[in-house]
């Protein structure tokens, strides 16, 4: 009788994924860029759980990305080279850290929340920079090897396995995100964003749900970080820097929040633009990138993913409008 839940997955949505899967054959020179895009997209998806669903803001989300990256790298350096358990460890460490700080983060709102997350991120960055024994300080960690993925696909010099691996993990994260968005938990998070007082009147312990949402987002960010460490076989301090927190927020604004393609579209456009502009104008490319970003948010406030959604949503919207008239007519 009626659709319930965020727009169902349309069969045609397999097409962009097929295109991504075909990248090594279409443009083998771009698989490294492709891996970076997949990792950034996963990271952006995790931030979208906070920003687009729970209505939380964060300028320190890279803390969890970096924790996941260091956890996976340290595990590999100490001889545990199986990639999937390394990913899980990255997610676990990030999730545990998030569980510690989440009560503090969800206590405050808006600007204060930005400051708390920013502060936590800066503190972690500083701590990692000092703890040279563990993190390698400014030199980071490198020189670790990973076993073949699933025991079948060894990592190669060209980055084909790395790309396939990153894409598969992104797809898994994407499916998880999609299911979560349609679940009672996803609705509860959006309910808390739209009207926390009403959620309390439904009996929801809002604080608890937000803490859970924060932890889930951190686990996903940790997995993205672990993925970066594994596919590049190195970790730099930059992985938990303020710059990375800001970058993923930009990516999400570009792609649009609250929709499952926002992170993917944002990461694709951002990385492609960065790649293209830096080749075009090696000295001034960040300036051009800034201009392109401003133009995007001014011209398409809902983000590029929102445009795609509107195009995709045209037909159902017309149906809805017709339904409205019928309902109104029926009542009068």
């Amino acid at each position: 009788m009626t659709t319930l839940g965020p727009r169902r997955v349309h069969p045609a949505e397999i097409l962009p994924w097929l295109a991504l899967a075909a990248l090594p054959w279409i443009a083998p020179d771009h698989v490294l860029l492709g891996s970076q895009i997949a990792i950034l997209a996963l990271f952006a998806l995790s931030l979208d759980l906070l920003v687009g669903h729970a209505g939380l803001v964060s300028l320190g989300h890279a803390a969890f990305f970096g924790l996941g990256a260091y956890a996976a790298a340290l595990l590999a350096l100490h001889g545990w080279s199986e990639p999937l358990t390394g990913l899980a460890a990255g997610g676990l460490v990030a999730g545990l850290a998030a569980a510690l700080v989440a009560p503090l983060v969800v206590r405050v709102h808006g600007l204060a929340q930005l400051m708390v997350t920013l502060g936590l991120g800066l503190m972690l960055h500083e701590a990692a920079s000092r703890a040279r024994v563990l993190t390698g300080g400014d030199d980071g960690l490198s020189g670790f090897d990973l076993s073949p993925v699933l025991g079948l696909f060894p990592f190669d010099l060209y980055g084909f396995t790395a790309y396939g691996y990153a894409l598969a993990v992104l797809a898994a994260g994407f499916l998880f995100y999609t299911r979560l968005a349609a679940s009672p938990f996803g609705y509860a998070l959006r309910g808390l964003k739209q009207n926390p007082a009403r959620m309390a009147a439904l009996g929801t312990d809002g604080r608890r749900r937000l803490i859970q949402g924060f932890v889930v987002a951190a686990v996903l960010a940790g997995i993205a970080g672990a993925l970066l460490a594994q596919t590049t076989q190195s970790v730099a301090l930059e992985s938990l820097s303020f710059h990375r927190s800001a970058e993923v927020l930009i990516v999400l604004c570009l792609g649009g929040t609250g929709g499952r393609y926002g992170g993917l579209v944002g990461a694709l456009v951002y990385m492609a633009a960065r790649d293209w502009l830096s080749a075009l104008s090696p000295h001034y490319w960040t300036g051009w990138l800034g201009a392109a970003m401003m133009l995007t948010v001014l011209v398409v406030p809902g983000g590029l993913g929102g445009v795609a959604r509107r195009l995709h949503g045209r037909l159902p919207r017309l149906h809805r409008a017709t339904g409205t008239r019928v309902a109104a007519g029926g009542e009068s």
């Binding site: 679940s183 009672p184 009207n195 439904l202």
Partner: peptide, 30 residues
Amino acid sequence: SLFPEMTAFEAVALALAERDGLTWRCLRPL
């Protein structure tokens, strides 16, 4: 005081899920 972006159906289903104490579930559909 409602959820402006949810449909009537979704909002009631959310209220039912909350009544049953199931809003922690993140993999099953609402």
